[in-house]
Simulated assay, not measured.
Amino acid sequence: MRYFLEIAYDGTRYHGWQTQPNALAVQQVLDDCLSKVLRQSISSTGSGRTDTGVHASQQFVHFDAVQELDTQQAVFRLNRILPNDISAVNLYRVPDDAHARFDAHARTYHYHITFARNPFRRFHAYYHSRSLDVAQMNAAAASLLAHEDFTTFSKVKGDTRHYRCNIYQAVWQQEGEELVFTIRANRFLRGMVRLVVGTLVDVGRGKLTVAQFEQIIASQDRSKSSGAAPAEGLFLAKVEYPEQLL
């Protein structure tokens, strides 16, 4: 029987989502706890990967259980043994062919920049000591919606077959002492959001014009993008599925 599990996590002490040798990953910890609660070996599949230090306020995984589960009870028992930087939120019975990654039709990330030194945000926002030209950053961000090929903002490694993405929203908004970037798309490439943010920050600093930003996208040249923004400011914020699935 297949289930979708909604979770949230603080990625500070993890080497990303995906299980890997000789490093602590969110997936490894989650699978170990699920295996203990369900008394069977569990290998989950996530809706996507997050890098080292990146957080998720909403992430979905699917797994198969040999017995029908009381979803509320399973969530309660799972939260009792999960570490306090990972939380189980909801559990859903889904069709046996449902897939957490392939059935997702949109994903949203948030990136947080703070202009005030705050010790309580040091692992959850990128501290930038100088002001940024938000109007220019938004003008550049809007141009992302006119493009489909984002080779420029992809990591070289990986098994990606193509670099096309449909971006539905890309906007910066001031929220108190923080500047928050929201980007929503059907899919994202490895490292894409942090590379986009790093390059947009250079627009805000006056190092790049909006026209140059567009030329960088069109170049499809990874060497043209700016450095990746720090991991701590990035959150996977929302994963969307067909309404009938959940």
Rank of each mutant, 00 (worst) to 15 (best):
I216V: 15
E6S: 05
Y126F: 13
V201K: 04
L234D: 07
M192P: 07
Y127M: 10
S47M: 05
D32I: 07
F76A: 15
A139G: 14
F115Q: 14
S47R: 01
L179V: 10
G53H: 11
Y9V: 00
Q244H: 04
T45P: 00
S41V: 12
V156Y: 07
E175G: 00
E240D: 15
R13V: 10
T199D: 10
S47Q: 01
N22K: 12
R121E: 12
H147I: 12
T152D: 00
G53E: 08
S47V: 06
D97E: 14
S154R: 05
Q136K: 15
L195A: 08
R101K: 11
F213G: 10
R130S: 13
S143V: 11
N118C: 08
T45K: 03
D85N: 05
E177Y: 11
L200G: 08
Q27S: 02
P119K: 05
F120P: 12
I86L: 05
V134N: 03
A135P: 04
E232Q: 15
Q215T: 15
D149S: 02
Q18N: 01
L144W: 05
M1P: 08
R107M: 03
A125L: 01
S219A: 14
D51L: 06
D202F: 13
L245D: 09
F188C: 02
P230S: 13
R187E: 14
Q169V: 13
A100H: 06
A65G: 03
I217F: 14
L246D: 01
L5M: 02
R122Q: 09
T160K: 00
R49P: 04
L189M: 11
Y109K: 07
E175W: 02
Q40R: 09
I216D: 09
N22T: 09
H124Y: 11
H162Q: 04
A104E: 00
I42K: 00
T50D: 11
A231N: 13
R77G: 10
V134Q: 02
Q27V: 03
R49W: 06
R77C: 13
W172R: 11
F120C: 11
N22P: 07
K207E: 14
S143A: 07
Y127F: 13
S57N: 09
D51S: 04
V210K: 02
A74I: 03
Q28K: 05
A139T: 12
S225G: 12
F4W: 01
D10P: 06
F76V: 14
